[in-house]
């Protein structure tokens, strides 16, 4: 059993602490819970040290099974990707020259993005995936039936089936802790404040200040100003409630540069299908008409129009007898 960790302040680059205090409770939240405002994570990848405390804290609090220990050969990363058992994943990206004389490490603790427009929530046919009062996205394990459409719908590769519950699972942003006024286990455990928890508004302000700080340092040192925010604004799926500060292209961190909602192409695809069905039905009707006209023409050519008609009737009768 994990020891509940109390809410801690969000440290900003300027040192000004933004306290996160549990509210007294409201119509939407139980007593002691945070106010029902959009909340999430800001992950500053430049201060991640790859300690994996977030992975451990997440597994500990959420009772997730341990992985089978195996060396992947992919740097220090043996988790490899997010799935139903690993709701946090620390990436290790080695960028070195061939002689390894020059280079750098990039590390990033990845998690569900809790998209403002969430593809998984859209496609879920059971209503198992819900949006909470904190604007986060949660899969209700007691409703999910394992159709796995959410896995295919998530553009970030976050969700997979948990082999124990046999339902789709991912980060809940510690919904249970939020309802008790506790910050998520991962951000509480992060020793460098790489993972920061707070209201989206606070986090966006802190993130913007941090980008300015880093780029100012780079400018002063004559280095490229490469720090930027990924998912902080509404250009990516309406905004990500878990957004990142990156210093290289998104693809380097295994993140898509763009993403679409699964429903985006449904109207066009449906229109093509409906058009195709109408077109084929029309072809079928034309084909019937041609068959009938050919039949009449043949009967007229043979000079036995009436006989032909009776012949068709006879054929029908014969078929009736066959039945």
């Amino acid at each position: 059993m994990a020891i509940p960790m109390q809410a801690t302040p969000v440290a900003t680059p300027t040192g000004a602490a933004q306290p996160i205090e549990p509210a007294a409770g409201s119509a939407l939240t139980p007593p002691g819970a945070f106010d029902a405002v959009p909340m999430g994570f800001f992950t500053d990848t430049t201060v991640c040290i790859g300690c994996k405390a977030c992975e451990v804290a997440c597994k500990n609090w959420n009772g997730l099974p341990a992985d089978v220990v195996a060396l992947s050969g992919n740097s220090y990363d043996n988790t490899l990707h997010l799935n139903g058992e690993n709701w946090r994943h620390v990436q290790f990206i080695e960028q070195f020259s061939d002689d390894r004389a020059d280079g750098r490490w990039l590390m990033m603790s990845d998690v569900c993005k809790h998209c403002v427009h969430a593809g998984c929530l859209e496609v879920c046919p059971t209503g198992a995936i819900i949006r909470t009062e904190y604007d986060t996205v949660v899969i209700q394990a007691d409703v999910c039936n394992g159709c796995r459409d959410c896995i295919a719908a998530c553009p970030f590769g976050v969700i997979e089936i948990n082999p124990v519950s046999k339902t789709a699972m991912k980060c809940t942003l510690c919904y249970d802790r939020l309802q008790s006024g506790l910050q998520p286990a991962c951000s509480a455990a992060c020793p460098t404040a790489s993972i920061r928890f707070g209201t989206i508004q606070e986090l966006q302000e802190a993130a913007t200040a941090r980008v300015e700080q880093l780029n100012a340092q780079a400018r002063d040192a004559g280095r490229p100003e490469d720090a930027y925010l990924y998912g902080a604004d509404d250009s990516l799926l309406g905004g990500l409630n878990s957004f990142y500060l990156l210093v290289d292209r998104p693809e380097v961190y295994h993140l898509p540069a763009t993403a679409k909602l699964p429903s985006q192409d449904l109207p066009a695809a449906s229109a093509l299908g409906v058009g195709g069905a109408i077109g084929l039905a029309a072809l079928g009707a034309v084909s019937f008409r041609k068959r009938r006209m050919d039949s009449f023409a043949e009967a007229a050519r043979d000079g036995r129009g009436e006989e032909g008609g009776r012949g068709e009737d006879r054929g029908e009768e014969a078929m009736g007898e066959e039945r």
Binding site: N74, D77, L80, H81, N83, Q91, I93, R148, D149, I151, A152, A153, C154, P155, F156, G157, V158, I159, E160, R249, E251, V252, H254, L255, P256, A257, T258, A259, K260
Partner: peptide, 23 residues
């Protein structure tokens, strides 16, 4: 998929998703 391969931009953003393993 080998994560390192994705350091090179894939032909579509869809390559970052996971398979639902519909068999």
């Amino acid at each position: 998929m080998d994560g390192l391969l994705l350091q090179v931009a894939p032909p579509s953003p869809t390559f970052f998703s996971l398979s639902p393993e519909w068999g």
